[in-house]
Write a protein that binds this DNA or RNA. Sequence first.
RNA 1: GGAGAGGUGGCAGAGUGGUCGAAUGCGGCGGCUUGCUAAGCCGUUGUCGGGGAUUUACCUCGACCGGGGGUUCGAAUCCCCCCCUCUCCGCCA
Length: 425
Amino acid sequence: MLSMETIRGATEKVKAACRFKNCDVDVDSVIALDDERKAVVAERDELNAERNRRSKDIGRRKRSGEDTSEIEASVKQISVRARELDAKAGEIEAELERLMLMIPNVPDDSVPQGASADDNVVVRDWGEQRSFGFAPKPHYDVAGGLGMLDLERGAKVSGSFFPCYTGAGALLERALVNFMLDMHTGRHGYREVFPPFLVNRRAMTGTGQIPKLEEDMYRIPEEDLFLIPTAEVPVTNLYAGEVLAEADLPVKLTAYTACFRREAGSYGKDTRGIVRVHQFNKVEMVKLCAPEQSPAELESLVRDAEDVLQALGLHYRVVMLSAGDMSFAAARCYDIEIWAPGMGRYLEVSSCSNFRDFQARRMNCRFRGKDGKLRHAHTLNGSGTALPRIWIAVVENCQQEDGCVVIPEALRPYMHGMERIRPPE
RNA sequence: GGAGAGGUGGCAGAGUGGUCGAAUGCGGCGGCUUGCUAAGCCGUUGUCGGGGAUUUACCUCGACCGGGGGUUCGAAUCCCCCCCUCUCCGCCA
């Protein structure tokens, strides 16, 4: 969430952010409500002060045996009035918080000030599109021939878009997870965590999935728990309500989790294969750092994700998102798009964002600076990377004319030394 | 699921209706002492919100003793609900 200082001091920018990110909040009325809050709180506090003075007086008089019934009656009246105002203040504060939680983060001045994905900017690319001596097939055809996927049976037990990986497909999935975790922990200096996959409402609110995206989450009503849509939620919220030491920053964490998304409203898109599914695996990187560090930490975060793709020899491009294409909580975001020759398009495998103090305010995560003062931390995260799409990229890029898939060398140690995936006997 | 114990300031740990934002100890910070260190002594040491002074550290009011509600002139202290932690029993991957 934004501070009230930001909302009051940069009102026009905040309004622009609401337009870019399609959030319907009346910023002026938020400010007006805060004015009202201040007035009610001031009156209540004055009454409380008077009540406290008189109550202490009652204590003194009782000890000296005086009659206090008159002054007690006066305090009673003050208390009743103060309680009414307190209730009113509580209502205003709840409404104010509800509205503040609906205001999106403000995009950085440095990002393209456009309204849609058309305004995104490719900032660099790596490698090139592989040329084939034959027509490359989409992953579902390649994987089908190799017994790597069983979408029909997955649909039988859960529904469509709940993929089931089989045989070498399952092994490839597991290999990719281990390969990426090893790289981030061993080479990039992240600490591995294995968090819960179900989180409470507070956590979902902390990272900003709620309220705007609540409809996209799977929810367990009995406990009001949500299946995580990304490891970002449990991992970032690990530090909710805490005060970190500046010397411990940046905190760099990596986690494998399954991710669950209802993908409400996206039916009809990407209906074949596993580009868009309700359950998928992902290795995520999360950072908490001091405000001064976050711009550089975002750049290194993207590089860490790129390293995965480079080690696998997969062509990709890095895109800076425009103000209108960024998520609710992000201030600045790079997407990494990997080339999928069978589908003939680039697929988003990673999204690396700097949230500045937006999530930290919601979570109340602070750090104590060297000067002894408390400040909100900055948070960042990025996929490193999302499994279905990197799985697709491996299968489609490494397919051979005979239908086999040659496994990238970096993955072979994770696949019992296997060099190529052949059709099952 | 059942029974019990407990959640107080950075930590430990007192406090069972007013003089408690909270003893005491440890830690932290400042100072004194000292050749240095240790020890000792003195002082200081939370967060959030409002108002005021001031180009920063200042003053003042309010709130906060797991969370929420209640009783009372007055609640860390009494009552109710919830959450979490620990111990034991049951069940179970």
